[in-house]
Amino acid sequence: MVGLSWTRACVLALCIMLFLHPAAAIRFVIDREECFSHNVEYEGDTVHVSFVVIKADTPWHYSEDGVDLVVKDPNGAQVRDSRDKISDKFEFIVQKRGVHRFCFTNKSPYHETIDFDVHVGHYSYFDQHAKDEHFSPLFEQIAKLDEALYNIQFEQHWLEAQTDRQAILNENMSRRAIHKALFESAVLIAASVIQVYLLRRLFERKLGTSRV
């Protein structure tokens, strides 16, 4: 029994390593348009997509304009789109396997930094390959566990990107507040200096008139 349990443990560990999906998350800077390709091998798979506009190339710029994302299948037909969003997360079912294109369009006059993540969820039917009645359900459960774990990682990555965006916005707002305060102080000091100068000129004129 111990030998059998050890064998199953080894098989479980090996299967987990085999089924783990690599992350397809990237962070890039967009000027006008940027496209990415991702191959989907099976029809019926679920593609999970998320993106967050992290920041603009100037700390003085803050806008809710967002970007456009259009997803096209291997035939060039549009399967999903997201318009004027600074952040979005969605999924779609693949109708035709092959290379899908994800094209971003930036309507802002500034360069934008975007965090983009894609994950393809696929369940294999292991009873077609493994006839053992014990291992077939085990493989299926491992695949489901792997998908659940990656979904958690996918959600976590999206939330981290949102947190990064908010931190940058807060920092930029703090900088703008400091610069505004310094500017207002400088204007106030300049106005005070001008007032003192005008008052001195006024008193000098009055003194000159009284002496005459």
Rank of each mutant, 00 (worst) to 15 (best):
S5Q: 15
I152M: 15
R97S: 14
L182V: 06
S210I: 00
V99R: 04
K206S: 08
Y123K: 04
A143F: 02
G44K: 02
G98C: 03
I54N: 05
H100I: 08
K206F: 10
L188T: 07
L20I: 08
S192D: 05
Q78H: 00
N172L: 02
R32E: 13
V70A: 05
V40A: 14
Y125C: 09
E34P: 03
G208Q: 08
S108N: 09
H61S: 05
P109W: 03
D31E: 15
F28T: 11
V40K: 00
K72I: 07
A56G: 12
S210Y: 13
H111F: 12
I189M: 01
I26F: 00
R8G: 14
P59E: 11
P109R: 03
P74Y: 06
T46D: 13
R201T: 00
V29T: 13
I114H: 02
E64L: 10
Y42G: 00
I114K: 08
T58A: 15
Y42M: 05
V47D: 15
V193D: 07
L14W: 13
V11G: 06
V71G: 04
R165Q: 14
D84C: 08
T58P: 02
R211F: 13
Y123Q: 07
A130W: 06
P137M: 06
D45R: 01
E171L: 12
S63R: 08
Q156V: 09
V118M: 14
A177N: 05
K131I: 04
W60Q: 14
V120I: 14
S124K: 01
L20R: 12
D115V: 05
L182Y: 01
G3T: 04
Y123W: 01
E43M: 03
H48Y: 00
H38K: 04
K96C: 01
V193I: 15
T7K: 13
I142V: 14
I189F: 10
V94N: 07
D132R: 01
G208S: 12
D115Y: 08
I54C: 02
W158T: 03
W60M: 07
V67L: 12
T105V: 09
S136T: 11
E160I: 03
S87F: 07
S174N: 11
V53K: 09
V40M: 12
K180W: 11
S82M: 05
I114Q: 05
V47T: 11
E171V: 05
P137W: 07
K96N: 07
Q166I: 04
F126H: 08
I93H: 06
R165L: 10
R211C: 09
H38C: 10
Q156D: 09
R32Y: 00
P74I: 00
K107M: 11
A190L: 14
C35A: 14
N39H: 08
A177M: 12
D73L: 05
C15A: 15
S136E: 06
N106Q: 06
C35N: 06
Y42W: 02
Y110I: 01
L159F: 13
V99Q: 07
V2R: 12
F183Y: 10
V196S: 12
A177Q: 06
I16S: 08
N170D: 11
R175Y: 13
H134C: 10
C103G: 03
E155M: 14
A181S: 07
H100N: 04
E171N: 09
F51M: 04
Y197Q: 02
V52M: 10
T7H: 11
R80Q: 13
F36E: 11
I178K: 10
G208W: 14
V49K: 00
I189V: 00
E34N: 06
M1V: 15
Y150W: 12
R205V: 01
